[in-house]
Amino acid sequence: MMSSGGYTSLDHQKVSGSVPAVSDPGHTSVKFTESNLQTFPPSEAQGKISGGSRPPRDADDSFSKPVPGGSSEEPPSRGWLSMFTVAAYKPYFDVDTSDVLDRIKESLIPFRGSFTEKTASNPDLYGPFWICTTLIFVAASIGTFVTYVAHKLQKKDWDYDINMITWSAGLFYGYVTMVPLCLYVILKYFSAPSGIVQLLCLYGYSLFIFIPASCLSVVPMELFRWVVAGLAGFMSATFVALNLRAHIISAGERWFLIVVGIFLLQLALAVVLKLYLFTVTV
């Protein structure tokens, strides 16, 4: 049989009888694999485009957190030069209002002695900075007001003393900076080192009690002012001493002397605050 076009001719003699079919060796079989095409958009993109149940990947906080192993635009500084960069101090200001309020409440209950444990993983400098700044202006303004009232009651001339603000700033900023630094060196010498930021945080929050004490000093009674200053100094000194006692015990037999020195130094701050800012001389 002849075929028209592309059909080949078949020889009837060769196909007669029962002969098993033999595949043409020149014939190549083509196997079509399963299609790998995917619907657009892919299933992983659900949530970005198709509005699936999963949230989009770009809705996380990848812009606020560094990618592990990734390269940042500004490589971090290494060595002691890193202390002059803003990034070095950023973790110590990573607190919110609730954290600061909780730490302030903890400082007003000095007998617990658990402040250092609660802030060990995240000591901050935000609270101490604003506590010292607030205390400077409150103490200077209250002291000025008390002196003004005393002069007016005795009908004396009164002149504003600008040195009260500068003196208060030097007192509180210097105290909350130099005392922790000296204590850091002492503890390191006695093989009981503590973090400098933890000490700054502890001493900064210990000064909060002097803010309400300064406000109560407007009462024109010298004995009452001494009681307020003494009570505030005792609470602040107890707060610092008890929180450092558990750590300083590892310094050896002299731990008691160190704790007593810390306690008396904090009381001395209250006495200086009373004598200079809340003692009225006309």
Rank of each mutant, 00 (worst) to 15 (best):
M1G: 10
M2T: 12
S3A: 15
S9V: 13
L10F: 14
Q13P: 00
V15L: 14
S16D: 14
S23A: 13
D24Y: 03
S29Y: 07
S29N: 11
F32K: 14
T33Y: 05
P42E: 00
P42A: 03
E44K: 05
A45I: 01
A45V: 04
G47M: 00
G52H: 01
G52N: 01
G52C: 06
P55W: 00
P56C: 02
D58S: 01
D60F: 03
S62Y: 14
S64N: 08
P68A: 04
P68K: 10
S71W: 01
S71G: 05
E73F: 11
E74D: 05
P75D: 11
A87E: 14
K90H: 08
P91C: 04
P91W: 10
D94L: 09
T97N: 03
T97G: 06
V100R: 06
I109P: 00
I109N: 11
R112W: 02
R112E: 13
R112Y: 02
S114C: 02
P123M: 04
F129E: 01
C132W: 00
T133F: 15
F137K: 03
S141A: 15
V146L: 11
Y148N: 03
K152G: 08
L153M: 10
K156T: 09
K156N: 08
D159C: 01
Y160I: 07
D161F: 07
G170I: 04
F172Q: 08
M178H: 01
L183W: 08
Y184D: 13
L187K: 05
K188Q: 04
K188F: 03
Y189C: 07
P193M: 07
I196R: 09
I196A: 12
V197G: 03
L200T: 05
C201T: 15
C201W: 06
L202K: 14
L207E: 08
F208Q: 02
A213W: 06
S214K: 06
S217I: 05
V219T: 13
F224A: 15
F224R: 02
V227C: 05
A229E: 09
A229Y: 07
A232V: 04
M235N: 13
T238P: 02
F239N: 05
A241F: 03
N243D: 04
R245D: 14
A246Q: 11
H247V: 08
H247L: 13
G252P: 01
V260G: 00
A268K: 08
A268C: 06
V271F: 15
V272E: 08
L275H: 02
L275S: 08
T279V: 04
V280M: 08
